[in-house]
Nucleic acid binder design. Sequence first.
DNA 1: TGGTAAATTGGGAACATTCCCAATTTGCGG
DNA 2: CCGCAAATTGGGAATGTTCCCAATTTACCA
Lengths: 337, 337
Amino acid sequence: MKRHQVTIIDIAKELNLSKSTVSRALTGHKSVKPDTRQAVLELAEKLDYQRNMLAISLITKKTNTIGIIVPEFHSSYFPKAIIGAQEVASKAGYSTVICQSDETYETEVANTRVMLANQVDGILVSITKETRNFDHLKIFQRKGIPIVFFNRVCDEMDVPKVIVDDYDGSFRAVSHLIERGRKRIAHLAGPSSLKISEKRLNGYKAALRKHNIPFDEELVISYDLNIEKVKIYVNHLLNLESPPDAIFAVNDPTAIETIQVIKKRGLKVPDDIAIVGFSNDFVSGLIDPALTTVAQPVKEIGQAAAQLLIDQINRELADWKAIIKVLKTELIIRKSS
Amino acid sequence: MKRHQVTIIDIAKELNLSKSTVSRALTGHKSVKPDTRQAVLELAEKLDYQRNMLAISLITKKTNTIGIIVPEFHSSYFPKAIIGAQEVASKAGYSTVICQSDETYETEVANTRVMLANQVDGILVSITKETRNFDHLKIFQRKGIPIVFFNRVCDEMDVPKVIVDDYDGSFRAVSHLIERGRKRIAHLAGPSSLKISEKRLNGYKAALRKHNIPFDEELVISYDLNIEKVKIYVNHLLNLESPPDAIFAVNDPTAIETIQVIKKRGLKVPDDIAIVGFSNDFVSGLIDPALTTVAQPVKEIGQAAAQLLIDQINRELADWKAIIKVLKTELIIRKSS
DNA sequence: TGGTAAATTGGGAACATTCCCAATTTGCGG
DNA sequence: CCGCAAATTGGGAATGTTCCCAATTTACCA
C-alpha cells in the first residue's frame, strides 16, 4: 500500500524533467513540447496521479469551494435549496461544504470557524432563529470573503440577499381565506427574531385590514418552530371562546401538523376549519386533505444565491451591496381551504 | 479591506517571537511560557487569526474531512442518512464534503476525483444505478484511503458496508399482503444492477413460495427508478387480463406514485388493490391512504457508516474488511394494505 | 555556418504551517 | 556567583504546487 502520494516530482524524476515542466504539461500550458506533454500525461494516468488541491490552493489562495450554512435539514426546504445551489456551484467548478447549525447560535458560530479554516471562497447563509449577533458573519466581510444570505437574512449587513416576497405571499393567502368566507383567521407565526416571520405577519395583518376584518391579537401565536409545540397552540386556539374558522400557518410542516391535530379532535378540514401553509413542501400535495399553500421556488432560490455568490467571487458584480433578489411566490389552492 | 490573511508570522513579528513559538502557543504545546502563550492568544483573537487548514493539512497529510457520495437527493432517504453521518462526523471533528452523482456513472467518477484532489481522509459511498465498473473507487483502496459503502454497496470490494436486511423486509412485506388474503401480488422492482433490488425481489419470491403462491413473471417489472415511468408500468399491470390485487413497490416514492395512478383510474386503495412500499419516507404516514411500508433506520445507517469510516481512519478497526453491518427493518402497517 | 529569435526547459522562491534539533535563557543548589 | 539542568525559544527543512526569470535547445534565414 502506497503511503506516499504520487507527486509531480515523482513524474519529473521518472522522465528526467523538472517539476516546472511537468506542472506546465499537467496544467495545459502551451509552452511545452507535444512529445513531452504526451509522456507526462501518460505517466500521470498510469500512476493514478491526482493534483493536490491543498498545495494549489495554498499558492493560488483559492479553494474553489463554497460553504453553505443552513439552520436545519428536517423540512424539505433547505435540502432543496442546497440542491439548487450545488447545481450552479458544481457547474462553475466549485465544490461545496455544507454545515447545519441545528438552529443554535453556538453551532452557527462553530460552523463559521470551519468555513474560515477551510478557506472557502465564499459562503451562503441562512441564519438560525436564535441568531441576533452577527459578528461571526461580519468577519467574512472584513476579510473580503463574499457572503450571500438566502431565506433567513441579516438586515444589518450590506451583502446580497435572496428572498421571496413573504409579505405578498402571506397577503394573498389570507385574502384567499377571506374570499372563501372565513371571518376569524388565526395565524401560527414564526419567532419574531426572524424577518420572514415578521413579514408574513405583516401580510396577514394587511389582508385583514384591506377586507375590514378587525385584527384580534388573541388569534396570533408566535412560536419557536419546534413542531412538537404545534399541538398545544392549535388546541389552545380551538378552545377559545370564539375559535377560528381558519388557520394560516407560517410554513408547511406547521400547517401539516395543524391538520393532524384538528383531525384528531374530530373536526373536518376545511369544513370546520380551513388551513393554509407556506412553502409547498413536497408532501403538501399528497396529504389528506391536500394543503393549500404559498409555493416558493425553493430550488431557484438556491440557484440564484449560488450564482450571486459566484459572480461576486469572480468580481463580476457591480455594486453587489445593494442586491436583494426577491422571487415571486404562487398561491396553490388545494382541498384544505 | 485586508487582502493579506493574518498568519502566525504576523503575530510573531508583532510580538518579537519566532513563528515556532507562536505555533506552539496556538496549538497548546506545553513548552511555552504562560505569559507568552497569553500574549499570543490575545493578539490572535484581536487580529481574527484563523489557522490555515490548507497548510496544516499539507504537512500533516490529514484534512479532517470525509467525503460523501450519494446518487440523489430527491427522496428523503439520502438527506436523512447524511444528517446521521454528519452528526457522527462533526462530533469526531470531521467536516463533510457532499457530492451528488445524479444517478450517473460519469458524475460519480467526477465526484471521486474531487474527493481525491481534496485529500479527504475517507469516503462514504452509495453507488448509482448505472455503476458497474468500480475502478474509480478501487483507487481509494489502493491509496489506503478508507471507504465505507452504505445502502447501495459494491459486492466486489472488501470494505465495510452498512445495509438493512432487504430480503427479510421484503419477505415480511409480501407475507403480510398474503395474510391479508391477496393472491396476485405484483412487484415493481428496481434495476437489476443494484443488489438491493435483487434482494428485495428474492424476498418477494421467497414469500410467495412459502405460501405456495406460484411465481408469475408477468407480475414483476424491473424499472430504472425514474419516477415518471411508474404511470406506464402501473397502467400496464392494471390492464393485464388477470390484474394484480396488490403491488409491492421497491421504495416509497414508487409506492406513492403508484397510489396516485391507481386513484386517478378510479380504483380504491386498498379495497381494489393493496400497496406496500419500502423505506418509510417522512411523507408515507401522511398521504391518503397512509402507506404500509418497510421502515429502515435511515439516520442510524448514516451514523453507523460514518462511525465505521472514522474508526477505520483512526485505525481502530481490526479486520475491517469483513465488516458488514446489517440493520433491521420494521414493517409498518397502515391503511394502504 | 553563424546568429538571433522562438521554443522549451530548469531553478528557486513562495504559500502557511509543523516539527525536529539546536540555541538561548532561566532557576536553583552549592 | 558559578555551573548545570530545565525551561523556553529560534532556525530551517519539509509539505506539493505554481509562477517568474533565466538558461538551454531548436529552428530558420542570411
